[in-house]
Simulated assay, not measured.
Amino acid sequence: MKFVELEDKLNYYFKNKDLLFQSLSHKSIGSFNNEKLEFLGDSVLNFIITTNIYNIFNDLNEGDMSYIRSNLIQSKNLIKIAKKLNIKNYIQFSSVNDKIDYFINYLLANSLEAIIGAIFLDGGIESVKKFIFSQFNENLNKLKNNRDLNKDFKTLLQELLQKLHFSLPIYDTVKIKNYKYNLKKFYILCKISNPKYIETNGIGLNKKQAEQIAAKKMLKLLNYNFNKNI
């Protein structure tokens, strides 16, 4: 398979084409797969984004910097970038129903991290920094201009509850169900007991994602009820 069009979109041309092919190869097709590149790419992405946050937001404390990093490199942003680059058309994996969105999104996020690892091995730190900045600068600029976006839904919920003098939320894992292709679904309840009992639910491919979804639902619910009673 030729990857020239993908390299055009990446704005990076591999010296070792095997690295690019490997970065797009899911473990379902054999031992020559992208798992190790994904592991490397995740670490490289974290390092470069963290360094950039440290330089730009050096007035913030460690916790706030962590929130910014989590916001930038969360799965939905990786998936969005992967879709923009049209990575799906190049991923190598065994026959899967294209309508299984969870699995496809899982592949997209992991493959993007693997590509980052491959660029690092092929071109070094400066090449991979250039690629990462080209893909993440838009979101980074949004965060620079709106500090509230630096905080995830769980943090925003906790701050709102403290402001309202409500009890802090409790997150319970209700169940974990096996899903297709070695994936799992996590079912989480977000519960508040004071001044009255309220609960919302979240479903995700990992616990963190499900908790964020439940917290977002709780924020919407509280904002509605709070505004109604002003």
Rank of each mutant, 00 (worst) to 15 (best):
Y106W: 13
I53D: 00
D64Y: 11
A82N: 06
N139K: 13
D64H: 12
L107G: 00
N55H: 12
N110M: 05
D148I: 11
D148N: 14
N97G: 02
N105E: 15
I49N: 00
E62I: 14
L140H: 03
D98W: 07
E138D: 15
N86D: 15
N58R: 02
G117T: 03
I119V: 06
Q74P: 04
I132Q: 05
N141W: 03
D122R: 03
N55E: 14
V44M: 04
D101T: 14
K130T: 04
N105G: 14
N58H: 11
I48W: 00
N55L: 11
D122E: 09
I119R: 00
N146I: 04
I49M: 03
I81D: 01
T51M: 13
S134D: 11
N146G: 05
L85I: 06
K84G: 10
I115P: 00
I132A: 06
N55R: 08
E113R: 06
E126T: 06
R69F: 05
S127T: 01
I116Y: 03
S95P: 05
I91Y: 05
N52F: 12
L108H: 04
N139D: 10
F136G: 01
E62L: 15
L60W: 06
N86A: 14
E126H: 05
Y90S: 04
I116T: 03
L108Q: 06
N86I: 10
Y102R: 07
S111N: 06
I56Q: 05
L112K: 01
L85C: 10
S66I: 07
S66N: 10
L121W: 06
E126V: 07
I91C: 04
S127V: 01
Q92M: 04
Q92W: 03
L107A: 06
M65Y: 03
F93Y: 15
K144M: 11
K142E: 14
K151T: 01
G123C: 08
N105F: 09
F93T: 01
F103V: 13
T51D: 15
G123Y: 03
K83R: 15
L72C: 04
A118K: 01
L140W: 01
I79D: 05
K154G: 07
K76W: 09
K76N: 12
S111D: 08
K99R: 13
G41I: 00
